[in-house]
Design a protein around this nucleic acid. Structure first.
Lengths: 209, 209
DNA sequence: AATAGTCAAGTGGTCAGACCACCTAACATA
DNA sequence: TATGTTAGGTGGTCTGACCACTTGACTATT
């Protein structure tokens, strides 16, 4: 544990990871019972209060359910909600990748349409430069591109949700759009052609749902 | 505290509410410092561990930030993320209602379109009955109506996000669609007229953005 | 006077141990 | 067989104790 530079990670965060590992190694399924708090404290070599703080976090995320007198159980339904912690819990579930992509797709499509009226020449210039730059990764370009669109919309909630989904997406197989897609979208902005935005997006996923 | 039927609310949840009250009464702004854990424990008549569990929850929600040796501070940026607890923190912020509605609108619009191919006669029958029933509130009808649509989509993530937004929306001024809207949407489903769904939605918010 | 060093107090982080309320299952009883 | 009873395990909570860290006041040095 004694690194040269202490990571300063809180115990309850470390506990969180260890519990995840425990779940994986023991192949726990939704509805299964976790070890008791006392047992976890002993196994993970941590105080019970730290264990509880971690469990409280998992409870908030909807990952577990505690029943007094009985124990702590994995939630039966697949949880979602916030925080990167989730990503490590999620990726085992098949179909999640598709859900992530579909949701992300919807948000980005609508963002592209709503941003249509709010982009000025300067914004379009920035996007152009962005697409010309070959030195950056595809993921990063995607984030920057849509990040700008979302920022113009002026809806923090929407932006937050998108950021969350995007973060999750990074942990799974990446699925972004064709390279030409971004250029075509930009062209539509330049030509002030709103109506084709929807179609352009749909072309990208014609086979998905 | 001794009610006839104990609410069985956990202390840390009660503490959560009291902290919120404290923040409001003392007009704390983002960046301001909360009382120390020990002070809160004394003031709220709770153990420090319970206080910490509550603070841990708030931290996860992005509401506070703890700095060892210094104290606990309100986060400077407006938080979002999960859980009904947020609703009570959020509603003071102007513009949030609009953001909530816009996001909800997008999700519902897309859900209505994606569900198009997945509704069978029985589903449409259920929706019809739902709209005929005058005994239920508009909000509930809305929830049930779109709840069914979302359930047909088979995307838990999307459904979860929508449920979250919906819960928030309930805490602010309600803004749903015209009564006729639901019937018209249903007609489009019956007529198998996909293309007009988008337009129908847009009519509802022509003046919003 | 300005700077550097020291130190005490306050704060979050953590642990250990103690009760309590509650649930369950094994057991004893009728 | 049905019904109480009970002991053990579990989460819920509190208390008190350290630790690590930050801050600011105080002191000594320059």
């Amino acid at each position: 544990m004694a690194g040269i530079v202490p990571p300063k990670q809180k115990v309850y965060q470390a506990v969180l990871k260890e519990i995840r590992t425990y779940i994986e190694e023991h192949h726990l399924q939704p509805g299964d019972k976790l070890p008791s708090e006392r047992e976890l404290a002993e196994k993970l070599d941590a105080g019970r209060s730290s264990i509880r703080e971690a469990l409280r976090a998992m409870e908030l995320l909807g990952l577990i359910e505690t029943r007094r007198g009985e124990g702590t159980f994995l939630t039966t339904y697949q949880p979602y909600q916030s925080v990167e912690l989730l990503s490590s819990f999620i990726l085992k579930n098949d179909g999640v990748k598709e859900e992530l992509f579909m949701t992300r797709f919807i948000l980005e499509k609508e963002a592209a349409k709503i941003a249509f009226d709010k982009l000025n020449e300067q914004d379009i210039g920035i996007l152009q430069v962005l697409l010309e730059d070959d030195s950056i990764q595809a993921e990063e370009r995607h984030m920057d591109f849509f990040g700008l669109l979302f920022s113009k919309i002026n809806n923090t909630l929407l932006e937050k949700i998108w950021g969350l989904i995007e973060a999750f997406s990074l942990t799974t197989h990446r699925f972004y759009y064709k390279n030409t897609f971004y250029h075509e979208l930009l062209h539509l902005y330049e030509k002030k052609d709103f109506d084709q935005i929807e179609d352009l997006f749909q072309e990208q996923v014609a086979n998905l749902y």
